[in-house]
């Protein structure tokens, strides 16, 4: 799956302000509201559901990255966004480190395959140290978008060869 299949371009954020877990999740969900990806009236129930999932175990998977996610009945396709925090957020990560890179995912309740494929695309890319470093250093949403597009292009080229 390509990033362009699920990342809402209008919701990408290069300068997240939040310093704690709940606020950063709210900021990311708000970004999806602003891009039109989710309805304003669904915002709080999505934030709550994402927080509930975090209680089961942090999605801070190490390397300064977290993939907070949930299912929600009112989205009809997998949507997500990327946010970068300059100062880092305490996220109870598996490795105890602060999180700088966030991929937030919201999926329809009955489509586990797309969720797995999105996690695959994200984890594959995050194993690349250069990608992580460039992502962390991104100053604008355009920088981030460019990195995601390059990653998509590389994946397509790999498949052809």
């Amino acid at each position: 799956m390509n990033f362009s299949d699920f990342i809402e371009v209008g919701a990408i954020r290069a300068d997240l302000k939040a310093l704690d877990k709940e606020t950063v999740i709210e900021e990311l969900v708000e970004a999806l509201v602003q891009s039109g990806g989710i309805q304003p009236q669904d915002k709080m129930s999505i934030v709550e559901a994402v927080m509930k999932r975090e209680e089961l175990g942090s999605t801070g998977i190490g390397r300064g990255v977290a993939v907070p996610h949930t299912k929600h009945a009112n989205v009809n396709r997998l949507i997500g966004t990327v946010g970068i925090s300059r100062n880092g957020v305490e996220f109870a990560s598996l490795d105890g480190e602060k999180v700088f890179i966030f991929f937030l995912l919201v999926s329809p309740p009955d489509r586990p395959t797309n969720h797995l494929r999105a996690l695959e695309s994200i984890s594959r890319q995050l194993r690349d140290d250069t990608f992580c470093r460039f992502l962390k250093q991104s100053k604008t949403p355009e920088d981030i978008l460019l990195l995601l597009e390059e990653a998509d292009d590389d994946r397509k080229a790999d498949k052809k060869s």
């Binding site: 390397r63 996690l119 695959e120 984890s123 995050l126």
Partner: peptide, 12 residues
């Protein structure tokens, strides 16, 4: 590695 395992996208 959790990143490695997620890369498998192992479905039901």
């Amino acid at each position: 590695s959790i990143l490695d395992l997620l890369m498998l996208a192992a479905e039901e």
